[in-house]
Simulated scan of single mutants.
Amino acid sequence: MTAADLLGALREAGATLATAESCTGGLLAGALTEVAGASEVFGWGVVTYSNEAKADLLGVSRATLGAHGAVSEPVAREMARGARDRSGATLAAAVTGIAGPGGSGAKPEGRVCFAVSGPDGTRAETVEFGALGRGAVRAASVAHAMRMVADAL
């Protein structure tokens, strides 16, 4: 799915989208806004790279961050809900993970957690992309997030 395809699907559904990104650093919002007319359905995105930003800007619970860490489905869910609540968008997508290099046995490089929040609730999932390299993990994460939003429509 391309950004143009996703924006068209959002238009057709009469839906709007917000994003909350960590490891992708705004690449999802950037891909969407690269397409002319994106502002019809995309009005809001935030990069929350630090835990403090996740808590302060999106309302992610410090208890959730402490219990699960930033790279977790519970944090991705709270990021997506926070973005949706604060933006007023129909849907919000969140991405948080370890693009690399680095990681640990418990949270390896290439692990990315996603969530999409909408009127029917919030769905989260984790993808293990593996140690593909930072750029490849980030690009794969953007593509996966767009597919999740399309599926939520």
Rank of each mutant, 00 (worst) to 15 (best):
G37M: 12
E40K: 13
V41C: 10
F42A: 00
G43N: 07
G43S: 14
G43C: 10
G45A: 13
V47D: 03
V47T: 15
V47N: 06
T48P: 01
T48H: 01
E52I: 11
E52S: 14
L58C: 09
L58P: 01
G59F: 06
R62Y: 04
A63N: 11
L65E: 03
A67E: 15
A70L: 03
V71L: 01
V71W: 01
S72A: 11
E73S: 13
E73A: 14
E73D: 14
E73F: 04
E73W: 02
P74T: 04
P74M: 06
V75I: 10
V75L: 07
V75R: 01
A80W: 01
R81S: 12
R81H: 08
T90M: 03
A92E: 01
A94M: 07
V95Y: 00
T96S: 13
I98Y: 01
A99D: 08
A99K: 06
G102F: 05
G102D: 08
G103E: 06
G103T: 11
S104E: 09
A106Y: 00
A106I: 08
A106K: 13
K107E: 10
P108H: 06
E109I: 11
E109P: 14
E109L: 09
V112A: 05
C113T: 02
F114R: 04
A115W: 05
V116G: 05
S117R: 06
S117P: 05
G118I: 09
G118N: 07
G118F: 02
D120H: 14
D120G: 15
G121I: 13
T122F: 05
T122A: 14
R123L: 13
E125Q: 14
T126I: 13
T126G: 12
V127F: 08
V127Q: 05
E128H: 14
F129L: 14
F129Q: 04
A131E: 12
A131N: 07
G133P: 00
A136C: 02
A136R: 15
V137N: 04
V137L: 10
V137Y: 02
V137D: 00
R138C: 12
R138M: 15
A139Y: 00
